[in-house]
Design a protein around this nucleic acid. Structure first.
Lengths: 123, 123
DNA sequence: GTCGTTGCAAAGCGTTTGCAGCCTA
DNA sequence: TAGGCTGCAAACGCTTTGCAACGAC
């Protein structure tokens, strides 16, 4: 990644402003506000480039298309609201992982997703 | 679902024999051993029918195509081996979920995936 | 001016659907 | 024999890629 185009700038800004993980389509929609005619292929290409650059991190939830957030955050997990479909960050970790790992298996990593209603939708 | 065709029988058997979740492609491959010329569309249609029938359960892991296992098992999670790409069942649950749920959020469900090396690949 | 980047359109890939013929009950 | 089920091929939705033009440096 070498040049700072207006498209790339808009995509960066969309991620930064969102505050929660965005899908490629959401990212395209938001960045299009700033750059008219932005192509979806450009969004995908920049997602890849920004990931390789270590600026962007992929958030994969079961059964969901991938979303993206700023990289470099502390270890965290996600809460997926079934009502508004938004994804929120959750600090902390339940721990206790070793105790459920089968004997002989080598645990390297884990993912962990909460489902329910966010504070707005629970009201 | 009303008729017991040889295709459906083969698909049921493939799931039962596997002992771990299978992707549609794996299911097609295994069931094809028993029924020559089995169409992939038939596999997908039966996956849907068997799910609606409550016989089959979908296992969705982050960033992975869906896999399927027998329904009706006790609450469990999965271990995904990064070496052989197989998915194993893990009994138990780390608990402690309430403590990481943000205030005001209503927790309804959770998913939880371990990554690493299975006992065979760790050797 | 160079060559990384872009938009468009075509190609991929996994999944779904329309349809005519098949076969279970 | 009826109509659920199947295989095939076309259609889909999302993502990737080829290509000629564009524009950041």
């Amino acid at each position: 990644m070498q040049r700072e185009t207006k498209q790339r700038k808009a995509i960066r800004r969309a991620i930064t402003d969102a505050g929660h993980p965005l899908s490629p389509a959401e990212l395209h929609e938001r960045a299009s506000d700033e750059v008219e005619g932005l192509g979806i292929a450009t969004v995908y290409r920049n997602i890849k480039a920004l990931q390789e650059d270590g600026w962007l991190a992929m958030v994969e939830l079961p059964g969901e298309p991938p979303r993206y957030e700023r990289a470099g955050k502390d270890h965290h997990h996600h809460f997926h609201c079934r009502s508004c479909d938004r994804v929120f960050e959750v600090d902390g970790c339940p721990g206790n992982l070793k105790s459920v790992t089968p004997d002989g298996f080598k645990l390297e990593d884990h993912e962990f997703v909460l489902y329910g209603r966010c504070v707005e939708c629970a009201a």
